[in-house]
Design a protein around this nucleic acid. Structure first.
Lengths: 246, 246
DNA sequence: CAATCTATGTTCGACATCGTACATAGCCTG
DNA sequence: CAGGCTATGTACGATGTCGAACATAGATTG
């Protein structure tokens, strides 16, 4: 229903009570497992641009976003950037560490500031020795991420910057759960791997179609379903995959 | 050293002895675990274009390639195709099933014909209940695949068709372990998500530079390191990631 | 050997995006 | 409220790729 939307607060997870929404992975595990894990989770406040892990640097923690959004990006040789994935309350950041790697050629940072629950990587691996429900959920989530990645591969090759722009806005809109959120065209250009001028043109088309409104770093989604229609089918493919998650 | 290259034959895995090389995941697990698994593995011959699983159809088996190469592709609305990943003897096909999904919005088929060891998905999950070494290896491999996917996302957005063409040829060259292999420009165009005419131009540049030779569906890599130089840095990023695997 | 596929070469205008540059205008701060 | 910073609008030619079409030539088959 609401793959990246808000969910009801879960009183069973003490550390999560101060955020506007729980992490959906953590909310889905049995109370006993929640309690066992709660002591090892640290509630952290992530500021915009805060780094979670850097290219080829050790990954020390995984993060379960509560109300923040994380971007995973590739820095190419010529210092251009492309976003390869995003993470919200539906999942966790630190896939490489979960999957047994110690580092990755990509980096993750906070895109939309907010709270997250942090878990030490070594603690996580000890925790999984018992092989509980969370482990299964994280595997299942990993699958959704691979679909997300694969769809991005196809999308970047075949769809116009305007379609991809609309999709990015629609997905972020789903994630933040508000119609208005801060976003500069410069930043969006970096995420999409296109020039700011290209974003400017796409954004104007979307605005003139009455789908969005914006002014100086603040964007508002006016017509959600219109935005979905303006986006490529990748929006639906990805959404469906995430809706399959428990 | 040889992330996608040949490896010495492994006599411990009976079912694999008829192929020119073993599957590297299976070769890396302890003999006891190998023996326990061997009974459930079926040696299959995969013809070119053979389907391993279809879009949104149940995935019944995972495949451990011996000397074949598998393509995972996305079919977009307008019946265009893009390859999102490839799988060789270094890994396995059927990631969605391994990660707990029953189907996926992408499909997998045999690109280079050859042998593979097939494992029933239910049997696999029962086998993993004991949580052995193979499970860990497959997780670790999953990580490499996510890096592969992520790099493809960036690459498709930022690099020229000529660079991507060179990278695809270099990677396939590594995989098949021979300098000459069958490949039409039409097929390569589909994998890269570009027109055949575009491949034709790229291929000519590479040929005139003395890096490759080809004639009617048969391509030969002449200058391997030259081809690496003509490819984008994505080649190295991905190679390094796969070299980290056990 | 002739007929027929099928893979490759090549061309045309069209179009999206690039790289670069400069202009405008909203917002913050002194 | 004046100055400056930063986000956005817009313009230019250059370039890569597209879509479509037609030509050529290697391979296969009767």
């Amino acid at each position: 229903m609401r793959p990246w939307g808000m969910a009801a607060a879960d009183p069973l997870l003490p550390a999560a009570t101060t955020a506007r929404q729980p992490n959906r992975l953590l909310a889905a595990i049995p109370p006993a497992e929640q309690n066992r894990l709660a002591l090892d989770l640290t509630l952290v406040e992530l500021a915009a641009k805060a780094s979670l892990y850097d290219i080829d640097e050790p990954i020390s923690h995984v993060y379960f976003p509560l109300d923040c959004v994380i971007s995973v990006v590739a820095d190419l040789d010529d210092e251009t950037v492309v976003e390869v994935a995003t993470v919200g309350a539906e999942g966790f950041a630190g896939l490489p560490a979960f999957l047994g790697a110690t580092s990755s050629p990509h980096r993750a940072f906070c895109q939309v500031p907010g709270q997250a629950l942090r878990l030490d990587v070594d603690v996580m691996h000890r925790f999984f020795a018992g092989d509980g429900v969370l482990h299964q959920l994280m595997l299942r989530y990993t699958q959704a991420v691979t679909v997300f990645l694969a769809q991005n591969v196809a999308c970047n090759q075949l769809h116009t910057s305007e379609q991809r722009c609309a999709r990015w806005l629609a997905q972020t809109h789903d994630r933040v759960g508000r119609d208005t959120f801060p976003l500069t065209q410069e930043f969006l250009g970096q995420m999409l791997g296109v020039r700011r001028a290209t974003v400017s043109l796409s954004a104007q088309v979307l605005q003139q179609a009455g789908l969005i409104r914006y002014r100086r770093g603040l964007i508002t989604v006016v017509d959600e379903s219109g935005l979905h229609a303006a986006a490529c089918s990748c929006y639906d493919v990805i959404r469906r995959e995430f809706e399959k998650l428990p």
